[in-house]
């Protein structure tokens, strides 16, 4: 079972790298859907979560539904509606981004090593993946111009935080009502961002955040 978890984590890491290198927005959304599903499945394979209760299973299904289907679906619709296919002229180029991604993995491994947290089940790879996903999400938000890519960066960051949460917390703290609330917030956040995105598109004929520099002192 442990090996299976590692395989899933490797897929998540690859999806992070792929998202940093891809310039097609549709592909990016598909990667996010995959990543969302993988992230939701991870708790299944963790040693400390072996005894799965009904609540946990239900929550996992809801999570797959939201992270793997609903949110990517909304993003897909947004990409279609604003009719842009690719990210042109990112602030930081694709090769450089990919390189940064690799560096992030190294840095995460270093940090995880230094943290010396006695991880439940000794899940070192989980922590590395989590920190990489989190920081790559932040990087994606800063290095791309299109508003949609920024939303995707935010989602990736949120995935990373969730992974850190599952890596660190014992299951005794898990309260399904609360976790469901967090998911709901995420869903509504993407919905609100989608609505604003749509409005930005109709106001500026583009979703480039370079236009959003009117307000400043």
């Amino acid at each position: 079972m442990i090996q299976l978890a590692d395989a899933f984590l490797a897929v998540i890491l690859l999806s992070v790298l792929l998202s940093l290198a891809s310039n097609r927005l549709k592909a990016l959304v598909k990667i996010m859907a995959l990543q969302g599903i993988m992230v939701s499945l991870i708790p299944l394979f963790l040693a400390q979560h072996q005894t799965l209760e009904g609540g946990a299973l239900l929550l996992m299904q809801v999570m797959i539904l939201i992270k793997g289907l609903l949110i990517p679906g909304m993003l897909f619709m947004a990409v279609k509606r604003v009719s842009i296919r690719r990210e042109i002229e990112p602030i930081i180029g694709y090769h450089a981004s990919l390189f940064t991604g690799l560096m992030l993995i190294l840095a995460s491994a270093f940090i995880t090593d230094r943290l010396q947290v006695a991880m439940p089940g000794n899940q070192v790879l989980l922590m590395i993946t989590a920190i990489t996903t989190l920081s790559a999400g932040l990087f994606l938000m800063m290095s791309r111009r299109k508003a949609i890519t920024q939303v995707i960066g935010y989602l990736m960051m949120e995935n990373g935080i969730y992974l850190i949460g599952t890596a660190l917390a014992k299951q005794t703290h898990t309260m399904y009502v609360v976790e469901f609330g967090v998911l709901l917030d995420l869903l509504v956040a993407v919905m609100v961002m989608g609505i604003i995105l749509n409005n930005i598109n109709s106001a500026f004929d583009d979703v480039d955040t370079g236009f959003l520099e009117e307000l400043k002192d």
């Binding site: 932040l138 935010y154 935080i161 930005i200 959003l212």
Partner: peptide
């Protein structure tokens, strides 16, 4: 308005990341 859209976008994104 365009300015309002810009303000909202910054508000939602910066605060969401912060709160994350």
């Amino acid at each position: 308005s365009k300015a309002a859209l810009e303000a909202t976008w910054k508000y939602v994104l910066i605060c969401s990341v912060g709160i994350a």
